[in-house]
Design a protein around this nucleic acid. Structure first.
Lengths: 193, 193
DNA sequence: GTCTATATTATGATAGAC
DNA sequence: GTCTATCATAATATAGAC
């Protein structure tokens, strides 16, 4: 609530930088994005930008964490992820190719162990799949979902389909209706014998 | 058959370069891989390497095409891709993280329209899904697969799961048995009501 | 076919003034 | 908090000798 205070301006600028960085990282990938370009877009010199984020990696991780928050926070009531939320997120993402690109390409790039964001993505997938598996298990126990498939397997598959479809969609947007396809899959899994 | 001739040495060297490049691109991604490093690994100077592939992009595309061949050619009888082949490829890939990494990260990196390999991956996905959809349709007509889901949808989903699971597996190899999971999915899709 | 040398252009980061 | 240098690398690609 402290919209005035010693840090007000700095915080606003930080937000502006994160917006621009999200845009650039999402559009061009980590390696091809330069600090100079992000600085330029926010009306700073490169050195000025480094006052806010003293390394490129630091800025990158801040961008990832912030996007993660968006996907989690401003939604429904529960703080738990669920199948429904995953489906919603996929549908929503069709309007934000930059975000999708960011996550698809960043998670792929972070794959090698020494990579900057490796830990971030490992944790994120573990958490996401665990949450969704919990939701599926609850639905199974309530008799609303088939027990023909293990909840953990189903969760992992749904997350995998979401990622894979996003990749197909990014490469060829007209060829895929992501939300429709993943919804069909879930409707089948839900009633499998 | 011409193991001797004016080009024999050049061709062998080309192969050696492609092997090293595949390894490096797969391990570090396109941007982080330098021509100098590939040259070093093949006992060439950077300029010497450029005699074989005059730009980095050219080398990269040669690597992609070659890997694509591998996945297609040395398999069974038919020249057509199929669900079975996709499942086999996923199982096989668990032994070749470098290859998986190459394709996951390269396809993600190629996402922007101006990217070097965009066309390659767009074509590849179209073809792959089309082939697999054809196989599924054939199974449906033979009464071996359920018609509860559209063949095109199912093919897209299976390819998406393969990609997504590979990503999960790369990030956290112990957490996923890719082949098992995708096989379970297919067994469910096959008998869906 | 392969090399050395170099041109050119970027990058991330630091030092220090204002 | 922001700037102007500048440093130190590192990259692809070219020119031209051998």
């Amino acid at each position: 609530m402290a919209s005035r205070g010693p840090y007000a301006k700095g915080l606003a600028k930080r937000g502006e930088i994160l917006d621009a960085a999200l845009e650039e990282f999402g559009r061009r990938g980590y390696d091809r994005t330069s600090m100079r370009e992000i600085a330029r877009q926010t009306g700073l010199s490169q050195a000025g930008l480094l006052h806010y984020f003293s390394t490129k990696e630091e800025l990158f991780l801040a961008v990832l964490r912030r996007r993660d928050d968006r996907a989690t926070a401003p939604d429904e009531d529960s703080h738990i992820h669920s199948v429904k939320r995953l489906l919603d997120a996929v549908a929503r993402n069709a309007g934000e190719p930059g975000l999708v690109r960011l996550f698809v390409s960043m998670s792929a790039e972070s794959v090698d162990g020494d990579g900057m964001a490796h830990g971030f993505f490992v944790d994120r997938y573990r958490w996401l799949i665990h949450e969704i598996a919990g939701d599926i298990r609850a639905q199974q126990e309530a008799g609303k979902a088939s027990t023909a498939i293990d909840a953990e397997d189903a969760a992992s598959i749904l997350v995998a389909v979401a990622d894979g479809l996003q990749l197909q969609w990014l490469l060829d947007p007209d060829s895929v209706d992501m939300a429709d396809r993943i919804a069909k899959l879930w409707s089948i899994l839900k009633v499998a014998e």
